[in-house]
C-alpha cells in the first residue's frame, strides 16, 4: 500500500514522530513547573515540593488534577466568547512553534529518511524538505501569542486584568521588534530562512552562530533576553506583577482555563529555549547523539531562565520600555551593521 510513492509504514513513522515529540514537550512543560519550584527552593535555602511521591515527583500531576476538578467560573460581566477563546489562543500559539524546530538529525526507518522535525518530510530520493520560511513562522506565531493575553485582559472586564493585558501587549510589541532584528543577524550568515539549513550550517563547536563573530555573540544573548520579555518571564513579568495587579490578565480565570495559561507560560519557555538553541547554539550538533544534544542544550537554557527568576527583581515599567526602545533596538541595528561589515571583511 503506497501513497504518493511512499509506503504506509513511512506515514506511520511520521505520525509516531509527531506524537512522541508532542508528548515529550508536554512532559517537559509539566516537569518544568516542578523543576522551577525545586530549583528556586534550593537557591533560596528551602526544600521545595517534597510531599507528593518520592521527592515530590508527582507534584505536577497532582497540580493538574487539582485544577481539573476545580469549579469553572466565568464572571457575569465578561464577554464570554473572548473569555473562552483567550486561553486556547495562548496555549496553541505556545505549542505550535514547535512544529518547525528540528530536534535531531535525519534518521532512517526501513530505508526511508525521516527528518526529526515535525513539519518536514523526505521524498523518495531522500532529499529533506522543510518549511522554507521556518524562522518567519516562529516570529508569526510569537506575534499571535499576544492575543491570548490581550483578549484575556479585555474580556475579564476587571481593572487588574485590563491593565495586565495592556502592559503585556505594549511589552510584547516592543520586544518583538528587537528579537526580530537580532534574528536578522542570523539570516545574514545562514543566507536561508529554513531551520534545517540553519542547523546544517552550524556543524562543529565553532560553527555555532553564537561563536561565529562578536556581533552574533551579542545578538544571541540579546535575542534570549528579548524572548524572556516576550514570554513575560522574570525580570519582565509585569503583566502578572502580583504586588500591583493581583495576577494580571489571568486574575479572573479559574480551573482548567487557568491551567491552560499556566501551561502556555511554560510551553513558551520551552519553545523560546528551543528556538535559541536552534538559531544560535548549533541546534542538535554536539558530542552526544543528535536528539540528546538538543535536549541538553534546551534544558541548560531552561535552567538559566529559572536561575534568572530566582536572582533578579522585576523591572519597573518605564525602565522596561526604556530598555526595549532606547537600548535594545539601537543595539540590534548596530549589530546588523557590524555583522554586515564583519561578513564582507572576513568571510569572503
Amino acid at each position: 500500500m503506497e501513497i504518493l510513492g511512499l509506503p504506509l509504514i513511512y506515514y506511520g513513522a511520521m505520525i509516531l514522530k509527531v506524537l512522541v515529540a508532542f508528548v515529550f514537550v508536554l512532559l517537559t512543560v509539566a516537569y518544568a513547573t516542578y523543576a522551577e519550584r525545586k530549583i528556586i527552593g534550593h537557591m533560596q535555602v528551602r526544600i521545595g515540593p517534597n510531599r507528593t511521591g518520592p521527592i515530590g515527583l508527582l507534584q505536577p500531576i497532582a497540580d493538574g488534577l487539582k485544577l481539573f476538578f476545580k469549579e469553572e467560573i466565568i464572571p457575569a460581566e465578561a464577554s464570554k466568547f473572548a473569555f473562552v477563546l483567550a486561553p486556547l489562543v495562548a496555549l496553541i500559539t505556545a505549542f505550535i512553534s514547535f512544529a518547525v524546530i528540528p530536534f535531531g538529525d535525519t534518521i532512517e526507518v526501513m530505508g526511508y529518511k525521516v527528518p526529526l522535525q515535525i513539519a518536514a518530510y523526505a521524498d523518495q530520493t531522500g532529499t529533506v524538505f522543510d518549511l522554507n520560511i521556518g524562522v518567519l513562522y516562529i516570529l508569526a506565531m510569537a506575534s499571535l501569542g499576544v492575543y491570548g493575553i490581550v483578549l484575556a485582559g479585555w474580556s475579564s472586564n476587571s481593572k487588574y486584568s485590563l491593565l495586565g493585558g495592556l502592559r503585556a501587549s505594549a511589552q510584547m510589541i516592543s520586544y518583538e521588534l528587537a528579537a526580530g532584528l537580532a534574528i536578522v543577524c542570523v539570516f545574514m550568515v545562514s543566507q536561508s530562512l529554513s531551520l534545517q539549513a540553519i542547523v546544517a550550517d552550524q556543524a562543529g563547536l565553532f560553527g555555532w552562530y553564537i561563536f561565529r563573530n562578536p556581533f552574533l555573540f551579542v545578538a544571541g544573548i540579546l535575542f534570549f533576553i528579548c524572548s524572556l520579555a516576550e514570554i513575560n518571564r522574570t525580570p519582565f513579568d509585569l503583566p502578572e506583577a502580583e504586588t500591583e495587579l493581583v495576577s494580571g490578565f489571568c486574575t479572573e480565570y479559574s480551573s482548567m482555563k487557568y491551567a491552560m495559561f499556566f501551561m502556555a507560560e511554560y510551553a513558551n519557555m520551552v519553545t523560546v529555549c528551543a528556538v535559541t538553541t536552534t538559531l544560535f547554539l548549533g541546534g542538535w550538533h554536539g558530542p552526544l547523539p543528535s536528539v540528546l544534544n538538543f535536549i541538553a542544550k534546551v534544558y541548560v537554557l531552561m535552567f538559566i531562565c529559572i536561575w534568572i527568576r530566582a536572582t533578579y527583581p522585576r523591572y519597573r515599567y518605564d525602565q522596561l520600555m526604556k530598555l526595549g526602545w532606547k537600548v535594545f533596538l539601537p543595539l540590534t541595528l548596530f549589530l546588523i551593521m557590524g555583522n554586515a561589515f564583519w561578513i564582507t571583511l572576513f568571510q569572503k
Binding site: 518549511l131 520560511i133 485582559g153 501587549s169
Partner: peptide
C-alpha cells in the same frame, strides 16, 4: 507564496491588529 503568508500574519495580524486592539482596549 510562503513568504507572503508569513509576512501577512506578522505585519497585519501580529502588528497592525494588535495596535488596533490595543487602542480599542485603551479607549475602552
Amino acid at each position: 507564496a510562503h513568504f507572503m503568508a508569513a509576512i501577512q500574519i506578522i505585519v497585519y495580524a501580529g502588528a497592525i491588529m494588535v495596535l488596533i486592539v490595543f487602542v480599542i482596549m485603551l479607549l475602552n
